[in-house]
Amino acid sequence: MYAIAAFVIAFVVIESVFFIVKAWKRGRELGISKETLKNTVFSSILFTIAPALSILTTVIVLASALGIVLPWIRLSVIGNLAYETVASETMLNVFGSSLSTEITDPAQFGAVAWVMTIGTSFALVLLPIMCKTIQIRVGKAVHKSEKSSAAADVISAAAFIGIIAAFIARAIYGKTPDGVGDAGFMSVCTLVTAVIVSLILETLCEKFNLKKLAPFAMPLSMFAAMGMAVVLNLVVPEAVSSFTWWG
């Protein structure tokens, strides 16, 4: 089982290294400075630490029912916090079981592995067919708008903001299927802290020309907001800290 995990993880790492090397070479050809490329690497590592710890938590949570290897494989490749939990729980419910109990039947274990894989692999079938066409159509649309006006920048920013808006809206009024992390006092305070700290750090970077701090402003703001969630949970009365729109 560990050999399977090692094989899958090696595949992911080799693919990532392959694309990084090709992109790095192309970046240098395009005149992107080594400093910019290095900053991208370091800020991406820092950015990844906290979410990766959260993913590790899911591996450990799922491990109580599925053992450590299958969740480890699934969340190292293609997997996702929500998908893996829902897929395994759905399969186990068919057997009259759930993730709250350890699976001891090998047939059930195999069934969970199949449902996780088939459920989440469809994007890998779609990508080779659709990715190039989508990129060409979007490229043409952007090119057309660049020719007619300066609207491309606004449209591009609007698309980014659309993604972020979904998560902001969830922090304001979202509900999770398991009730953990529902929107309410804590989610809004964490969100507001992240926004305020990020704005302060960005302003400081601009005002004092702190070029080396700038790439780390975002991850530092995220850690500050996570710290605020811990502090609020300790100092605010439980009736307030546990308030959500969903009771």
Binding site: I164, A194, S221
Partner: peptide, 30 residues
Amino acid sequence: PAFTYILPALFGALGAGYFRKHWKISFFPI
């Protein structure tokens, strides 16, 4: 709580810069 509310922390920090530059178009999608 730090891990429970990791997504508001992550997207609040990421969104701040965009909201500052493009605040007029940020309210509607939210």
